[in-house]
Design a protein around this nucleic acid. Structure first.
Length: 127
RNA sequence: GCUGCGGGCUGCUCUAUCGCGGCCAUGGCCGUUAGCGCCAUGGGUGAGGAAAGUCCGGACAACGUAGCGCACCACGCCACCUAACGGGUGGGCUGUGACCGUCAGCGUCAUGGACAGAAAGUGCCACAGAAAACUAGACUUCCUGCCGGGAGGGCUCGCCCUUCUCCGCUACGGCCUUCGGCACGUAGCUUCGGUGGGUAAAGGUGAAAACGUGCGGGGCUAUGCCCUUAAUGUAAGAGCGCACGCCAGGCCGUAGCAAUACGGCCCGGGGGUAAACCUCGUGGGUUGAAAUGUCACAUACACCACGAUUCCGAUCCCUUAAGCUGAGCCAUGCUCACUUCAGGGUGGGAGGCGGGUUGCUCGCCUGCUUGGAAACAGUCGUGGGGGGUAGGCAGAUAGACCCUGACGGUGACGUCAGGGCUAGAUAAAUGAUAGAGGCCCGGGGCUGGGCGUAAGCCCAUCGUCAGGGAACAAAAUCCGGCUUACAGGCCCGCAGCAAUU
RNA sequence: CGGGGUGUAGCGCAGCCCGGUUAGCGCGCGUCGUUCGGGACGACGAGGCCGGAGGUUCGAAUCCUCUCACCCCGA
């Protein structure tokens, strides 16, 4: 049985790690998303990856729109993260992931989910 | 009934699956208890009328506190509501519009008013205009004396009287879109100018022209006399006087808590602008949850204060004292012994018991070695300072709270009674998928009606099938207002149109 | 959460404080001249209702209120 939950330990909350992500993380774009990732030495929880979302305020000035996009991206991650977990299992290190929404308009959910699946498969191949 | 405008209320509902943040209960990780954390299960709960903009006012907190003033900022008819307000309610005054009404006036309704002061002072009022503001003085097609000129009349040919000193025309130039026109300028023509005094009425301009109207030279012993410019006569004698009216000020009376209204008396002021400076009155201590308190982690270090301690050594004292590197590992250095020509190599620099800890540690005994204290200075500890790490908890969600009813009040609102608990996140919780119902849109198909031979065209209440749409927008310490955005639905008021009675 | 600033011609800016003519300057643009041609240069010209709405005033880019957009600062 696959786990479709999104628990506390899976959320990236450390200001330090997020700062390091922007400073030395690798990234690639998968329209309308962009992924920034980095391997972290010490594990902060028992999960193989921690995940967070960012929606720029410059493109979506209304908080309602930002909230909706963030929730949709998180939903797509929740339903597809097991593909990445399977690969990362058994590794000591932890993966920090940051997804940025780069499109100028709010796109429907199916497009976001498709981009999320392709993004995960690309990340899997790179490792 | 439809349309438009304004105001108030509301701000789609349900089901299934997978998920999220708080709260409560149970269980597991979990071991002696408790706490924290994570997970699972169950229960219950989870954005707004504006959560928004951050335009005001408070609560709360820190700092300051002996009180006051200046500066600065905000507000400004009156009363009330309120914790408070620049918010609200009611009233007054005033502008605009509509209606009743014979005009004026009065009244009713709707709507707007930064609605204290322009008689405290300063500034400004472009262009145009004589003048744009203390005292009022220059100008003109105004009045008049003198000199000069023209016309007419009288006549003693010396003079005297009356009247005019304007209207206009032409040429050239300038401006405007042609014809053509002009508050335009210059020169000339027709018989017409110069100069002195006075200044009441009037002066095409302008947003605004000295409050409006009427009468009047001043004084006196008053049908006359006197005086001033200025002189025989004549004229003007004044931005002055009086009366009434309008507005403003002071006092009094009546109604009203008051603003104010009405009436009377007195005073003797009159352009606008205070969203120009300003004056008066009232209010504001400053900074703001990134406030503040507390716990944990981490406290390297320039520096300061206090305490303890000790290398050399003047001095003082005399065995109840001090020491035996480092918690551990590795490396280097120190000291002792042995060895080597030297570089170097080997070995030693303590042992035991007890308390206690993740760890640093403390006390006692044995063994070995050594004399100790003392200003400055060094070291250690504590506090401050400064730097760094940046988390947990409190603040922080039961409150100027919500609902219902009664009572008081024109109303905003208040009082009482009963009931209810209604988000508390912190890289930040409400989502995704599928389906159903209701609402709206436009009119495609069916359907109904009308016209037409027909093709077809037009109209549409209801029904039905397929389709599309559902706004503005999300807490971040809390609360009361204001402003702004908003699809659809319901209710109320006003206006217009149509139909019926 | 709090504070400050800017919107004026295609672009970059003045003018605003202290209201008054036809809102100026540079670059750019158009036409003409110059040149064999281009550039440079010279002459002439077009292009604005001052972010939006309302108000004060005789009169508003300027003063006041509300609002929209953008930029900057504060741990």
């Amino acid at each position: 049985m696959l786990s479709y939950t999104f628990q506390k330990g899976e959320r990236l909350k450390s200001r330090k790690v997020i700062g390091a992500l922007f400073k030395e993380g690798k990234s690639f774009g998968q329209y309308p998303l962009r992924l920034v990732y980095l391997s972290v030495k010490e594990r902060r929880s028992e999960f193989p990856a921690q995940f967070t979302v960012s929606v720029p305020k410059k493109k979506f000035s209304k908080a309602v729109a930002r909230n909706r996009i963030r929730r949709q991206i998180r939903e797509a991650w929740r339903l597809n993260k097991h593909r990445l977990y399977k690969v990362l299992e058994g590794e000591e290190r932890q993966m920090a992931l940051l997804v940025i929404y780069v499109a100028k308009e709010a796109l429907p959910y199916p497009e976001i989910e498709r981009a999320m699946r392709q993004m995960i498969s690309r990340l899997t191949k790179k490792r």
